[in-house]
Design a protein around this nucleic acid. Structure first.
Lengths: 213, 213
DNA sequence: GTTCTGATACTCGGGATCGAGTAATCGAAC
DNA sequence: GTTCGATTACTCGATCCCGAGTATCAGAAC
């Protein structure tokens, strides 16, 4: 049993729409898009209808009416239930109040970085740093624009957060690339040796901790 | 078609084991555990056999022999193919060299933080900061221990990265909590007002940008 | 010598997920 | 008045994914 009855983040976004007012699914999807929620939440609109159905099954939302507009297909308008409202604030509180264990792909890469030759690793890290810097620039432009058209800071906190994370990552990446390049990172000599052996077609002996026993 | 034929991160870990030497699936799982890869990579060992099968189907690994050891069930030992080796370094290079768009749950929470009353938000942010600080402490202890038993820095870069990210997050969270609490964040007055209305049972009017037209 | 614990090694069912597809309608343009 | 592309609104099946379960065996313990 996963922590939540419906755990797809799209469900959270659905609840957030319905917390505001009743809507039909397609309107939710346009609303989310409009507000740029897909930038911060992984929203797969292909799952929208199954998620809505699942929310209904669990009593967090309920159909309010089905309207027939012209000769278009029927649309079912949903509203949030009080159980849904509880779930919504509880979920939000968890997201904000409790750091979750996450698995950024870069961390996965770092933990296996030894699988690449050190010089390649340095080159790739430099490339990453460059891409991160241009992300930062793009973000700054957007922010300037948002300010200009009068969006309150309150609605930009997530962009702020992201910026901070990216800046920290750049700092880390720069430092790591440099310390591999100049050999000051403890273990690089060993790493280099392994890959030279491998390139020369020799057997490679994996690193073993000096036995404690 | 997803970017990779087999996209489960467990597959990457399998490749990394087999890049070193042939193994049978269960040995891979113990090896990964031993090396603490599950800290940095999302490894669901329940998917191990399906992932291995899928890798084989796509020609990235191949069975080398099935050994019968005593009266235990047969174990199939796999080895990496040259296509697999290519896939492995290509995947690694991508993880390191190209920032991926990710969706940390905290960012999702931030983008909807308006759904909580401001005072609750402040309390939750403070709680988060406290938890992050204790994570930091736990990490520092581990690091000290690793150093003591002689693990080269090279094998700890991912922990280093994580530390940097957490520190940056703490900075952000502290600042945000303070700026909500003292009202200096642009939009907080409006936010507070909405939730007072809501608490009083009144209709709530959602924020609209001043129309440009 | 038999009970227990923990490691070994694997299986399986079914829900979640997602991209690609479809079908109808609207508005603009010619 | 009809072509055509964009938008609206939804459907579906193939794959993925995972937790929980199972069965066996080695060694400890009594």
């Amino acid at each position: 049993m996963p922590r939540r009855k419906v755990s797809n983040p799209l469900a959270l976004a659905v609840l957030s729409c319905l917390a505001e007012r009743p809507m039909h699914p397609y309107e939710m999807s346009t609303t989310m898009r409009e507000r740029g929620k897909h930038e911060s939440i992984k929203l797969n609109y292909g799952s929208l209808y199954s998620v809505v159905e699942s929310l209904q099954k669990h009593g967090l939302i309920a159909p309010r009416e089905t309207v027939k507009d012209g000769r278009r297909p029927e649309r079912t308008v949903y509203e949030i239930t009080s159980a849904g409202r509880l779930e919504y604030v509880d979920w939000l509180a968890e997201l904000i109040g409790t750091p979750a264990k996450e698995y950024p792909t870069f961390e996965a890469g770092l933990s296996l970085i030894g699988g690449l030759p050190p010089d390649d690793a340095v080159r790739l890290l430099q490339q990453r740093a460059a891409l991160l810097r241009s992300q930062l620039q793009g973000g700054a432009e957007l922010e300037r624009y948002a300010k200009e058209i009068g969006v309150p800071q309150l609605f930009l906190v997530e962009a702020d957060y992201r910026r901070g994370q990216i800046e920290a990552e750049i700092g880390f990446v720069d430092k790591l690339a440099a310390s591999i390049a100049d050999g000051s990172l403890d273990g690089v000599d060993y790493w280099r040796q392994i890959h030279e052996q491998y390139a020369a077609g020799e057997e490679v002996t994996p690193f073993r901790l000096p036995s404690q026993k």
